[in-house]
């Protein structure tokens, strides 16, 4: 099987691996790099679970071949915070019960990271619109929106 040499940076670490062209970025991140924080759901671009940041922008890794992002910088949920020092969004998801089973949480967090980067002061409607990119079958979404609202306020407080 034809393989292509792929070099990219994930969470600040540079990796160089041979990959099959048909290898999805989601599978590369999980199987080749062992970073299982990125979840896979529908694997055809509907559910949003596999969302990561490619060069700072959200993208669905099940709709991206690894070979397409040669040279790119990828950020996955593993880069956000640590158990000892949670990212403000993680802290807010915890406090506001923004998760139950946790399957959609990595995607929700990274979607919220992009939203707050572009728009530190989102309205509740803007939060709903952004977060609607990902399906959640547990929470009913309201607590997720609460969490993003709360994190936005906390992050502004930090900046002051």
């Amino acid at each position: 099987m034809e393989q292509v040499q792929l070099t990219l940076t994930v969470n600040g670490t540079r990796y160089s691996r041979p990959v099959e062209p048909r290898c999805l970025l989601s599978d590369f991140i999980r199987h080749d790099l062992g970073l299982t924080g990125t979840h896979v759901g529908c694997e055809h671009g509907v559910c949003g679970m596999c969302t990561v940041l490619i060069d700072g922008q959200t993208a669905r890794t099940c709709l991206t071949f690894a070979v397409q992002v040669d040279g790119a910088e990828i950020t996955t949920v593993e880069a956000l915070g640590t158990p000892a020092k949670l990212h403000p969004l993680q802290q807010a998801f915890w406090e506001k019960h923004g998760l139950q089973c946790g399957y959609c949480t990595p995607a929700m967090l990274l979607t919220a990271v992009e939203l707050l980067n572009n728009n530190p002061n989102p309205t509740r409607n803007e939060i709903c619109e952004a977060m609607s990119a990902n399906l959640c079958r547990c929470t009913g979404y309201q607590t997720i929106v609460d969490a993003v609202e709360s994190a936005a306020a906390a992050m502004k407080g930090e900046a002051r």
């Binding site: 099987m1 034809e2 292509v4 062209p21 048909r22 999805l24 599978d27 694997e43 070979v67 040669d70």
Partner: peptide, 11 residues
């Protein structure tokens, strides 16, 4: 891996 194999040409 979901897709069938293909020949990849990076233009």
């Amino acid at each position: 891996m979901k897709p069938a194999p293909f020949q990849y040409v990076r233009a």
